[in-house]
Design a protein around this nucleic acid. Sequence first.
DNA 1: CTCAGTGTTCAGTG
DNA 2: TCACTGAACACTGA
Length: 280
Amino acid sequence: MPELPEVESVRRIMERVLKGRRIAKAEVVPDDIMQFGQNPLTIQEALEGKLVTAVGRHGKYWWLELEEKPWLYGHLGMSGWIRELGAPTMRLKEHGNAPLDDETGRPRFLKLLLETEEGGRIAFTDGRRLGRMWLSSDPTQDDRLTKLGPDAYTALPELDALIAILKKRKAPLKALLLDQGLFAGVGNWIADETLYHARLSPKRLGSSLTPQEVAQLRKALVDVLDHAVRVDADYEQFPEDWLFHHRWGGSKGTEFIDGKQIVREPVGGRTTAWVPEIQL
DNA sequence: CTCAGTGTTCAGTG
DNA sequence: TCACTGAACACTGA
């Protein structure tokens, strides 16, 4: 679930709680499956006592900028989430991160806990443990970040540039939208939602699009991202007519949207929900 | 008990 | 070298 709008909402939460404040205590919970770039103690020591000067995001990656390097970088993977403890816990169920504390009184699946001198607390949890966290003093040397294309929300290529890019690509649109080197931050539901609004089949090859179709695609992506980011990725505030609200319905039965059948099948390597009747 | 679903990485193919 | 495909990764929740 954590795609660009979700990560942006998480970035804003961290910015509100941490920016301009000093980290009094940092706790990294050891985990042999989740990928830590350094050992937990090293990460803790790099964070404790440091002033947070900014919180950044590119695609689905986020980072904490500290008064001195190294900085902390992270990715939520498929099931990671970040929230403020002690704050209202909206939407947690939808994200698979039960707000329920275990016997220790801490969140389940806790991986990182930060506390500011003022008492603000930020928790990074990850049930399926495919998230990542690492320290970096020089992100320009980090493959994970340098391989990213422009952020789909803040730096989407202009129409002419996009036309030129897609003209050279033979992969299906679904795969192209998911390519982080092209549209950093786009994930499975955003790709499907975008194609639905653009009325384009996920199977169309990039090179097959007319300039007008590229324009439709670009506009749909901008609209979806703008709205999702504006409402802080609160799914309940997504418009009723978005595919989002219908794509998962009844895992078995056929679902319909506006009277048209939603088909679910793998395209570009991922489960794709689309409406063949109107997506051509 | 089985299996879908989530994003990135890596091996393999053309 | 590049574009692309598909599997693996680990786990939860249905």
